[in-house]
């Protein structure tokens, strides 16, 4: 599903003395099946964008287009609900939203809420639980008897069960250990590839941005300050630091080497690329002798 923001503004408590502009004149397009990272310092407007994408709030001015379907300030609430059916959002620490007696029932809640029969909902739930790799032996257990990582998988299955076309991930790996983080991000990459999902990832983990995203939106003080691919974004460390953002470790290390006099390409974003460039450099110099 394609998403377009056209001159979107959002003001909290508009028309009151407490009016506070959160987003100013936002314009961008997200292509169907893109994996977009949304990055920015705390308070830059990321959460407001997520709420707009999920139809929880409407733009104060401007339009949001979902495959051409327009959402603006005048859109009735029930039309927002239609959009919401296509957008799955995984909030931070989603496991805190589990509530049902069994894993299966918890995952069935979303589809039933959108009007599916219990039979249909169960099929969707089982499919979603398979997608998150939770073995069937857990399905009849209480979600509260599972480990933290498993609980998070159940919560994510609950989002996938509504078969969204857009999946929004808000810091999905916070609090997990490194192996758990890797498993979670690999799972999303597989979903992106196999289910044709459009993914929007909100994160502070620049390693993940470099590894998984093909498109990056950088927000600062309610404005979109850069929209490019990860290589372009991470090529300017000084600029990112001004936005109080980090670069991936590989970029930081490359820049340190360059400062020491190494001549290395600019488009390095991960450790494998860095190792390869160093190999060429070390071998290349060796051959010249």
């Amino acid at each position: 599903m394609a998403i377009e923001f056209k001159n979107v503004n959002y003001v909290y408590q508009a028309g009151t003395p407490f009016a506070n502009s959160a987003l100013t004149n936002l314009n961008f397009k997200i292509q169907p099946n893109a994996y977009t990272a949304l990055i920015g310092h705390t308070g830059s407007g990321k959460s407001t964008i997520l709420q707009l994408l999920d139809g929880l709030i409407k733009p104060t001015a401007g339009q949001i287009l979902f495959d051409g379907h327009v959402i603006d300030n005048k859109t009735p609430q029930k039309d927002l609900a239609k959009v919401r059916q296509h957008v799955g959002i995984v909030f931070q620490f989603p496991e805190s939203q589990l509530f049902e007696q069994t894993v299966l029932k918890d995952v069935m809640f979303g589809p039933q809420n959108f009007g599916k029969t219990p039979m249909e909902a169960q099929k969707l739930a089982e499919k979603a639980l398979k997608l998150v790799n939770l073995p069937a032996e857990y399905w009849q257990k209480s979600p509260f008897d599972l480990s933290g990582g498993q609980m998070r998988r159940v919560a994510i299955a609950g989002v996938l069960a509504i078969e969204p076309q857009i999946l929004i991930l808000d810091e999905p790996t916070a609090g997990l250990d490194p192996v758990g983080r890797k498993e979670m991000m690999t799972m999303f990459a597989q979903l992106h590839a196999k289910q044709n999902l459009t993914i929007i990832l909100v994160t502070h983990q620049m390693e993940d941005v470099a590894e998984y995203a093909d498109d990056v939106l950088v927000m600062a003080a309610g404005k979109l300050v850069k929209h490019a691919d990860p290589q372009t974004i991470f090529a300017d460390e000084a600029w990112l630091q001004e936005q109080q953002l980090d670069v991936p470790h590989a970029v930081m290390f490359r820049n340190k080497l360059v400062a020491q006099g190494f001549d290395l390409p600019k488009n390095i974003v991960n450790v494998e690329q860095l190792a390869k460039s160093l190999q060429v450099k070390l071998r290349g110099d060796g051959l010249n002798e």
């Binding site: 470790h249 590989a250 190792a275 070390l282």
Partner: peptide, 15 residues
């Protein structure tokens, strides 16, 4: 640690 990651990536390339 990143330096260790780089070491094993270089090692994988035969360095």
């Amino acid at each position: 640690p990143f330096a260790e990651q780089l070491k094993s990536a270089l090692n994988n390339l035969g360095i």
